[in-house]
Amino acid sequence: MKVAPSRPNIEDELAPARRQTNAMIAIDNVSHVFRTSGRQDHLALSNISLIIEDGAFVAILGPSGCGKSTLLYVVGGFVSPTEGLARVKGQAITGPGPDRGPVFQEFALFPWKSVLGNVMYGPRQQGVKSAEAEAQSRALIEMVGLKGFEHFYPKELSGGMKQRVALARTLAYHPAVLLMDEPFGALDAHTRTRLQNDLLNIWERDRKTVLFVTHSVDEAVFLSDRVVVMTRSPGRIKEVVEIDLPRPRRRSELLLDPRYQKYVVEIERMIDDTSEEQLRP
């Protein structure tokens, strides 16, 4: 199947020059086609260009099936794009690496390892001495609020706790970029809110670059500096919205802030528009 002709690079129009020079992730004209035997090929991503500067919290928002996770997997190096190139720190991405740490909706913890064992995995793989890796991991486990659960196994934990372990496991190998794929999607509303708050607290401490895929508008606006709104089939960038809200953000204040409400309504409208397009024959 032929990939749609390239169109002007959205990021060029929107990005200030500083972003270009300080790029942590540069996605350049990436398209991805899923080839399926029998059925028609599916164009999941079409000409995506995006630059994310060091330390930015960027949300990718869109309806399910818009290719937002695929975009994240391209950056992770788990999926090789059919066309285009993604770079991290100027280096072309050819596969997974410890500079980009994923956190998945499915947690994907190692079931045969305890909480401590899961968190120690990264440092141990990188050759950190056992005692040192354990000390670091214990500190991280405490940071994500799981002190006392070091020797529990994943099957003994609740969903929220599992996701905390997954976050600690990823933070343990000090990735430059956190790739979060609907990390709170499988959690109940209350747990979700708590994890959002805790993630913001952790992020505000060390300001890692975060690429955060979600289909929740509130979540995207609450957490990020910038929201990338995508359309479905083929997945394109519809709009990039800068979220100009002060940090540190507190949920109780933000929910009452008219600017926050305006962002949410504005973005929800954009997504409705994309769904309308979708329904047209």
């Binding site: 992770g76 997974p96 410890p98 998945f104 913890l109 990823t170």
Partner: peptide
């Protein structure tokens, strides 16, 4: 899970 292992690991470098 494989991906999680691959990202934290220097061992797997290819897809």
């Amino acid at each position: 899970m494989l991906w999680s292992g691959a990202a934290g690991n220097i061992l797997f470098n290819s897809l």
